[in-house]
Design a binder for these strands. Sequence first.
DNA 1: AGGATTCATGCGCAATTTAC
DNA 2: GTAAATTGCGCATGAATCCT
Length: 339
Amino acid sequence: MNEAIYSIHREAGLCLDVVGREVKKGNRQLDATIRIPEADTQLVVEIKKWAPHINLGAVINRMNHIAEPGQGMLLADYINPNMGERLREAHIQFIDTAGNAYINQPPVYIYIKGNKPKVNVVAGAWDKTGRAFQFTGMRVVFAFLRDKNLINAPYRQIAEQAQVALGAVGWVIRDLVAQNFLLEGRKKNQREFANLDRLMDEWVEAYPHKLKAKQRIATFTTGDPGWWKAIDFKKFGALWGGEIAAARYTRYLHPKDAVVYINKEYMAKFLKTARLRKIVQDKHAAHRVDLIEPFWRKEKDSGKTAGLVHPLVAYADLIETGDPRNLETANRIREEYLR
DNA sequence: AGGATTCATGCGCAATTTAC
DNA sequence: GTAAATTGCGCATGAATCCT
């Protein structure tokens, strides 16, 4: 953190005062707060270890939540030019240890990009992901989030529900305890959740690369925006995710791109019926259709949500896009279905 | 005893480094 | 710049241990 502040001073001659670290504000835990003397404003800081392909949508969404517009600041080890540009478009201020920054606090305006990262970015002081948010852990956590009672079920049952090996369950639970997402021993042999919101945030953020990427079957495109309306998902054992699920859950969105959760065996049959085309690399497709292999254990469809993925998955799909309208819709889903 | 949980081990994947 | 080799890590497995 000090390194980033030093870097911005070196690059732009701007001084930042650290007001507090690990501050509590309401029910949110803030990494730090910072003051800009020149603009006489105080910013809420979120510290992130930066992977080159982090889930930007999740970060933008979280920044919008922890702070009023323009009052938040992201601090990271390195933010590459592409991501910096996208953050600026989303009006998220940031600084990194390489000296890149975007700050818009009139009269202060800074936008620096193109500084290269240091070769050895030292890990350790930065939070690491841990087992709970790896490929297998993600399945377990999802199973927990879907059915909150599952945390007190026997390991065998958890493994069964999450579709993971028995031995993996213990790893994940102990990691969750270590990260204060689970409390053990309040009552005899009972576990209970803590920081459920944060757990959901973490899961959603890790979802695209840790789980979804590995489940991806293929991506297609179509020119017909209403193509999906004619599809009878029951025939293919498929479920709608992403924008289409969101549209059904909230009636607030006109879907553009689609995410379809479908088993591989049904793919050929599905493609034939849906008349989708292979995606062309260099052209921006009008309507993307991602086919993803489901990772959860099937449960019975019920009522009006039949044919849709669990709200959390739809939520994660939307967040991933980073699109403002999608983020707004995502938050409606969270309010309505994920409390 | 019998199921629940933890532990030790080796496998497989993937990222990183080295050789070509 | 590409291919091969190495390393490291997460995971599943199955047996050992714990608990009731």
